[in-house]
Computed example of a mutant assay.
Amino acid sequence: MASPATDDYLKTVYAHTEWQDAPITPSVLAAKLGIAPSSVTEMVKKLAAAGLVSHVPYGAVRLTDTGTLRALAMVRRHRLIETWLVREFDYGWDEVHDEAEVLEHTISDRLLEGIDARLGRPRFDPHGDAIPDADGHVERVPFVLLGDAPEGHTGQVLRVDDRDPELLRALEALGLVVAATVRVTPSGVEINGTDAVLPPDAAQVVWLTA
């Protein structure tokens, strides 16, 4: 099943549980991909028959070991391309996701290796997501979603979800970027020691060190 659609499915299943524990269901997968649930059901059946996911009717979709390795390879491509676009072409962190979605399916393994080497083997992309190495190993540190962090918690920003460009621009204007220090206060948050009012939903797209 060598196709961009297959890779997109596997990458989406992987990303869903990367920063939280709840497994993905076919309905949630359909919503994330913007595809009709009936189409997702048929594709999941094909992925399961190919040994890439495990699934029972009305249950969660989980990657097999083979599916995980393939998903990690696509995640590596996507995140290296995002990093490359930011560092080499001065893209903003709010501009790279859609470009990477296209390029990840077209560049060769040789070019990808060249990009990785030129960038100095980066471990994280511009949004703080870990870049798997060529063997599929991923670096992990304990984390907490900002919305779940208790009052008084102080941590560095590990990751900001990249799906909403407008929200990314708003967070960047506040200084809430990767490696910024955030303290949860009774009235909201401090960012690098300065009180800040977060945009709606911001606390659900930012992860801090635990």
Rank of each mutant, 00 (worst) to 15 (best):
V177G: 06
T12F: 00
L171Q: 11
A49I: 06
V178C: 03
L111M: 09
R62K: 15
V53N: 03
K45P: 08
T41V: 13
R79D: 13
R87I: 06
L72T: 09
S38A: 07
T185L: 00
E101P: 06
M43V: 06
A31T: 05
A60N: 13
T12A: 01
Y9V: 01
A31V: 04
A134V: 13
K11Y: 03
P186N: 10
A60C: 14
P122I: 01
L111A: 12
T83K: 12
A149R: 02
K11C: 06
V141Q: 14
V205G: 03
T209L: 09
Q20Y: 06
H153T: 12
R70N: 13
L158R: 01
R79L: 14
Q204Y: 10
A22Y: 03
V182Q: 01
L119I: 01
T154L: 04
L167H: 03
V184R: 14
A73G: 15
R76Q: 12
V96G: 07
P165V: 04
W84Y: 14
P186W: 11
D195M: 11
E113G: 09
G67E: 11
H153C: 08
H127E: 07
T6H: 02
L63Y: 05
T194K: 15
I107L: 14
V44P: 00
L47M: 09
P23C: 03
G175T: 04
L168Q: 10
D201R: 10
D162L: 11
G120F: 01
V44D: 04
R183D: 07
R159A: 06
A49N: 13
E172H: 07
G92D: 10
E95I: 11
R183L: 13
L80H: 09
I107Y: 08
L146K: 00
E190W: 08
K45H: 09
A22N: 09
A202I: 09
V13P: 01
G155V: 10
E172P: 11
A180F: 05
E42N: 09
R118E: 10
R140F: 05
